[in-house]
Design a protein around this nucleic acid. Structure first.
Lengths: 348, 348
DNA sequence: CTGAAAGCGCTTACAG
DNA sequence: CTGAAAGCGCTTACAG
């Protein structure tokens, strides 16, 4: 029985058979701490010892396990970025900017999409906290972030971007949605429009509300009473936005100009307008690629997504470096870029 | 001295004063393992005990430290994605698709840009390995990935996307660059063009070479000898591409059509062509937003970035689930989308 | 210059 | 149903 006893096949699953510092130490005939010194480039090792350790490292294919290191050191040198959708072109430059700042501070970026779902946002954020990210940059989907209080109290640096946190006091970096929208709408008014439509994102999203507020302010400043049918908030998918656009452009008294609340809306509105024979003026919030090459070019209120990300990430690392400033609200200016669509006079 | 001895101010830095399972156990008056059971939803705890533990958890604001968990369990439930540039719109849908698959498998995504720099790629990949990601999805910048051999041997699942690995045998998912480019160029030839330019990415990039090969194949199939001045490979920044475009369009015998090697090139070429009075035909590799609304619409060879990411990630998790298939090369088809610019006849 | 011991916060394998 | 001990792979604080 002894001889024929079946031995376990495939003893380990996979993974886990990686060499450790202990293995390296044994092979090099030195203590564990000496290996640690070599691996971390600490001083106080003879060149000869160092060589022996290095040889063992190479022979074994050793790579330090940062999970263990992190456990001991406390900081993970990683930050989390939670945004709405990695695939949205608006977030590309923002993510990249956050990544560059993180890189400059030796940190990695863990990225996740909330899909504009508050529950998914919370799930993601808390998963990142369990991983003990040093900090969080969050583009919030929800409007109640009290669930983050214990984490922030425990030292997780946190900065919100694009939209403020809900029901907690935290740093936030945003664009001047109100001012940008007001200027964009005022621009349309200056070109003779009075019947101006506003198509925006869902009303629970802060920027949607702020931009609507800017629209109303511009109209009021010009003494133009706003009609309910001129305003449409909701999801920004092509179907919803396309219908809203067509509704505003139909009927006996159609709008002569449209203010589009973000890049997704603008793209769909441009598409609808392209199918029309009469000209309708358009100003969109957010710049979009190739907007300058359309006929007419699309006039936009541009925000600087990269700057938004950079500012937030720098603020985050300042928190991590121990700055204990009170939470601040940083608002970046927008820029009106005239390209033709916003300078069209009212039709008829 | 005893009474007036200065006590340490701010005893801990920040962080690190988080409650642990031990704290929870002490407060609830139970053993460590019982806390672990409750936290992980394991069976075998009386409702009453569970309640006491849960109260301690809430009171202390305890959140399990996954770093410690990972160290013990071996798997980190995270995967790394290394791409060229998070800000490039081509990678947005790809990243999002990888994220969705990871999420379905309970894993987080750690993301990084190589900036098309082989050294930075290696640095990033190895940093991810040190974090012990379970797997890697890599859009390679370099052409030698032997540095990954020990990692792969140690069990790090690896899939390359968009471009194959260099000097190692690994899974790769790519679009049919050769076939796509050949079809696109053949399309121009079918519309009467013979003097056709090719503007592509740097020659060390696999897709650039494959698309150039497709161009040459189409020309050869049609019996058209290719002149050196018709081909230009290099960085895809607007300056370089703009100059290349103008050079091809200048001189006594300018090209009558251009094949653009990727989305970055297409955008710049479109811009140059917009400033011209004579029509020049254009087919671009990669679809771009709003391409259908330009005049003329931009004819493209589209690849499915999301499908690329999804396929790669699924393959990755199949590896992690223990599938031991031999490394495979998966090629996804491209699709020619006719919108006008590729159907223009030769000028003159 | 070098190393043995303790500990980071969990899970595993056992024992009661 | 419950818990004490050992261990994951490192770093820290000391001692020689």
């Amino acid at each position: 029985m002894a001889e024929t006893a079946s031995r376990p096949e495939r003893p380990e699953p996979r993974y886990g058979n990686r060499p450790t510092m202990k293995d390296v130490a044994a092979r090099a005939g030195v203590g564990l701490k000496t290996v640690s010194r070599v691996v971390n480039g600490e001083p106080g090792v003879t060149p000869d010892t160092e060589r022996r350790v290095q040889e063992a490292i190479d022979a074994l294919g050793f790579r330090r396990n940062d999970s263990a290191r992190v456990l001991r050191k406390g900081r993970t040198a990683s930050i989390g970025l939670v945004l709405e959708d990695l695939a949205d072109p608006f977030y590309g430059p923002l993510s990249r900017a956050v990544e560059e700042v993180a890189r400059a501070h030796g940190a990695l970026l863990i990225n996740g999409s909330s899909a504009e779902d508050p529950e998914r946002e919370q799930e993601l954020v808390l998963a990142l906290c369990a991983r003990r990210v040093d900090g969080l940059v969050v583009i919030p989907a929800g409007d109640d972030h009290r669930y983050l209080e214990p984490e922030i109290a425990a030292g997780v640096a946190t900065v919100f971007v694009d939209r403020p946190a809900g029901k907690i006091d935290a740093d936030v970096v945003l664009s001047d949605s109100f001012g940008g929208a007001r200027d964009g709408v005022a621009h349309l008014i200056a070109h003779g429009h009075r019947r101006i439509g506003f198509i925006g994102d869902q009303p629970r999203i802060h920027t949607a509300i702020e931009r609507l507020r800017g629209y109303r302010a511009a109209m009021e400043d010009a003494g133009i009473p706003v009609e309910e049918e001129w305003m449409s908030l909701g999801p920004t998918d092509p179907d919803r936005v396309g219908q809203a656009t067509e509704t505003m452009l139909g009927g006996p008294e159609p709008v002569t100009a449209i203010f589009a609340g973000n890049n997704r809306v603008t793209v769909t509105v441009v598409r609808v307008l392209a199918g029309l024979t009469r000209p309708v003026a358009l100003v969109g919030f957010d710049d979009i690629e190739l907007a300058d090459l359309l006929k007419p070019g699309v006039t936009v209120v541009a925000q600087d997504a990269a700057q938004l990300g950079r500012t937030a990430a720098e603020r985050l690392f300042r928190q991590l470096d121990g700055a204990s400033d009170a939470p601040e609200r940083i608002e970046l200016p927008t820029r009106l870029i005239k390209r033709g669509s916003g300078e069209l006079p009212p039709a008829g």
